[in-house]
Design a protein around this nucleic acid. Structure first.
Length: 311
DNA sequence: ACGCGTCAAGTACTC
DNA sequence: GAGTACTTGACGCGT
């Protein structure tokens, strides 16, 4: 099995992205849009640096920070974040393609497609379109990873609403969405069934599976999960370690390498290839530490810094 | 330079 | 009912 590892959003070796929230934007009055422009230009620069850093360190799997363009989907702030920055988008897109970095996005908790509130669904669709727009502007095949959403007292109804709202989306939007099991409500079985019905890929989050399961054996589900990727893309999964036994839902700074290796040893019976996104507080440092430990503990054959093969 | 309150938005949980 | 966690913690203000 060939395994490629990735990390999320920020490198600890590089500066963070800048933001501008609505309150501060308003305080700036007519200078608000100028400030926003400065932040956006800075973030483009920062993202280019991160991509170069990834390439230099042979990281080929990366999740974009979705606050690259602050206030992009705010209902009261309208500005052109595509055409005006076309040159920047293309530059970023060219880097991503040149470096062959698999890139995805993961909206935050406000993107809830199955909400009973029409307004919430509407703004969630706006968030999805933002993601679609930026992928288009970069001319890359990015994907958005979503959760099913809230439970609202009935899981069944909540799932039905998700499916119904999903089917109402433009086909082009449907095509970029993948679903991930969450740590509280929608477990592996729930999400798998939805993915099978909608014929979209399922991103298995192993940490969420540990937090939220009905004592099912993951081995029983892996063939079906991997089947949702057949003929589409290399399967993608998420892995992280719990902060502590007490705070098991929180992400730890680093990956527990023994758990990770155990997981790989299970997984290798089911797929020839997988891309695994590590979700750790220590970001790329967690990735590099995990690699050091894997090299020490196993005889996996490394193709490059972050890609290896296990028999 | 640093600490603290705040931030557009949803949902679910604890106290 | 208020506070908090989720997440990508960053910004601005007061000291």
């Amino acid at each position: 099995m060939k395994v490629k590892l990735g990390y999320v959003s920020l490198s600890l070796s590089l500066p963070p992205f800048k933001t501008l929230n609505y309150t501060n934007y308003q305080k700036l009055a007519d200078k608000g849009l100028d400030k926003l422009d400065q932040v956006i230009i800075y973030n483009f620069h920062n993202l280019r640096e991160i991509l170069k850093y990834n390439y230099a360190n042979e990281v080929f799997f990366y999740r974009l920070n979705h606050h690259l363009i602050p206030l992009a989907t705010h209902p009261k702030v309208t500005f052109d974040y595509i055409k005006k920055y076309q040159k920047h988008w293309l530059e970023i897109g060219i880097l991503i393609k040149k470096y062959q970095i698999r890139t995805d996005t993961h909206p935050d908790q406000y993107c809830v497609l199955n909400s009973p509130s029409k307004e919430t669904v509407k703004s969630s669709i706006e968030i999805l379109k933002y993601n679609q727009n930026i992928f288009k502007a970069m001319k890359i095949d990015g994907k958005v990873i979503l959760h099913i959403g809230g439970k609202y007292s009935s899981k069944e109804e909540a799932i039905k609403r998700f499916i119904s709202n999903f089917k109402k989306l433009d086909k082009s939007l449907q095509n970029i969405i993948m679903l991930e099991n969450d740590d509280k409500v929608f477990n592996v079985k729930d999400v798998l069934e939805v993915c099978e019905e909608l014929k979209i890929p399922m991103v298995l989050d192993y940490h969420h599976y540990i937090c939220n399961n009905e004592n099912e054996d993951i081995r029983d589900y892996l063939p079906r999960i991997l089947n949702t990727w057949k003929g589409k893309l290399i399967p993608k999964m998420h892995f992280s370690s719990p902060k502590s036994i007490k705070e098991k839902r929180s992400h730890s700074e680093y990956i527990n390498s023994a758990d990770f290796i155990d997981f790989l040893e299970i997984l290798k019976k089911y797929t020839k290839e997988v891309d695994i996104m590590l979700e750790c507080k220590a970001k790329d440092e967690a990735l590099f530490r995990l690699i050091r430990e894997i090299k020490y503990k196993t005889n996996y054959k490394f193709i490059n810094q972050t890609t290896f093969i296990l028999q």
